[in-house]
C-alpha cells in the first residue's frame, strides 16, 4: 500500500522563479490498485511521481510504502521498492550497453552488487525467454547496444526491466507520449499485461483520455499542484473519455475568468 499524506514541494523557494509545484497532495493507494493521473501541463503530475520516487525529498508531508516510512530515503534506496519508466525512452536504459547487460542490471534492482558475473548462464536464458515474449524479435539481438533500438523497443524493455523483480510500486510517467501511435499501442498492451499479470500497484500519468478510461481502476485529476477530482468505484466505472475532456474544459474555463474570481472559486472548490 502507498500512503501519501500532505506532501508539498516548492521549487526555487523565495526567488522570483518560485513554483509551488505540489500544494498538499494526499493519496492512499491500496495494494494491487492501478491509479491513473491526468491533469493539465504543469499541474504537478511528474513532480508527484518524482517525490514518490525520491528524485528530491518533499518539503513537508510523509510517504509510506509497503509499511515503511520512506519520506527521507534517498532515491537509490527507494528503488528497492519502486520500479520506474520515464517519459523519455533514452532515460530508462544505458545506451552503450547491450540489451542483456541492461536487463542484468535490472535483475538486481535494489540488491547488493558484488563480484559475481553479471550475466550468468541461467539469467541469460531466462531473459531470452522473457524478451521473446515481447514479440519484437529482440531475442536474437541480446548483445546489441540498446542505443541502436527504436524508442518503442526501448520503452518495452524499460518496462520489462522495471517489473523484472516485482516492485511494490510501479511508476509510469507518460511512458508512451514520445512514441508513434503503433509503438504506443504495443507498449500499452504490454503495460496492461504486466500490471495485471503481476497485480502490480501502479501510478501512471497520461495525457490520453482513452488510456485513462481503458486502463486502471481509479482516475485522479491534478490541477495546480493539488488533487482536483478523484474518481473511483461506480463513478469511475461510468466515466467516458468525453466526461474527462469536459472536466478539462471546466478547468480551462475557470482559468479564463478574472483572476480574483478564479481565486475565490478555487478556494471554495478545491
Amino acid at each position: 500500500m502507498l500512503e501519501i499524506s500532505g506532501i508539498t514541494k516548492t521549487f526555487n523557494a523565495r526567488s522570483p522563479n518560485e513554483v509551488r509545484a505540489l500544494r498538499g497532495v494526499s493519496l492512499r493507494l491500496e495494494t494491487g490498485s492501478f491509479l491513473i493521473i491526468i491533469g493539465t501541463n504543469g499541474s504537478g503530475k511528474s513532480t508527484l511521481l518524482n517525490a514518490v520516487a525520491g528524485t528530491f525529498i518533499a518539503d513537508t508531508g510523509s510517504i509510506k510504502l509497503a509499511g515503511k516510512d520512506i519520506t527521507r530515503w534517498p532515491e537509490h534506496q527507494r528503488a528497492k521498492l519502486i520500479g520506474r519508466v520515464f517519459q523519455n525512452p533514452f532515460s530508462g536504459t544505458a545506451p552503450n550497453m547491450s540489451i542483456a547487460e541492461n536487463l542484468a542490471l535490472a535483475a538486481r534492482r535494489g540488491r547488493p552488487r558484488g563480484l559475481g558475473w553479471a550475466l550468468g548462464h541461467n539469467l541469460r536464458s531466462s531473459l531470452r525467454d522473457r524478451i521473446r515474449a515481447l514479440n519484437m524479435g529482440l531475442e536474437d539481438r541480446l548483445d546489441n547496444a540498446i542505443g541502436s533500438l527504436s524508442g518503442g523497443q526501448r520503452q518495452a524493455l524499460t518496462l520489462l526491466m522495471a517489473s523484472w523483480l516485482k516492485p511494490e510500486l510501479l511508476l509510469l510517467d507518460e511512458h508512451t507520449a514520445a512514441l508513434d501511435p503503433r509503438s504506443a499501442d504495443q507498449v500499452i498492451r504490454l503495460t496492461h499485461q504486466i500490471i495485471h499479470g503481476d497485480k502490480l500497484t501502479t501510478l501512471m500519468v497520461t495525457h490520453s483520455m482513452q488510456q485513462a478510461v481503458h486502463l486502471g481502476d481509479r482516475i485522479v485529476m491534478m490541477h495546480r499542484g493539488q488533487v482536483l477530482y478523484d474518481l473511483h468505484g461506480p463513478e469511475r466505472a461510468r466515466v467516458r473519455p468525453e466526461d474527462l475532456l469536459n472536466r478539462f474544459e471546466e478547468v480551462r474555463h475557470r482559468e479564463q475568468l478574472d483572476p480574483t474570481v478564479a481565486e475565490i472559486l478555487r478556494r471554495n472548490y478545491v
Binding site: H76, K80, I82, G92, M97, L105, R108, G114, G116
Partner: peptide, 26 residues
C-alpha cells in the same frame, strides 16, 4: 571486473546515471 555485477553497474553509472539510480545504485 567490468563483467561483474559491480563492474556493469559502474559502466552503467557513466552511461546513464538516472537509470542506474532508479535501479537502486548509489
Amino acid at each position: 571486473f567490468f563483467r561483474t555485477n559491480l563492474g556493469t553497474a559502474m559502466r552503467a553509472t557513466g552511461d546513464n546515471p538516472q537509470m542506474i539510480r532508479a535501479l537502486g545504485v548509489s
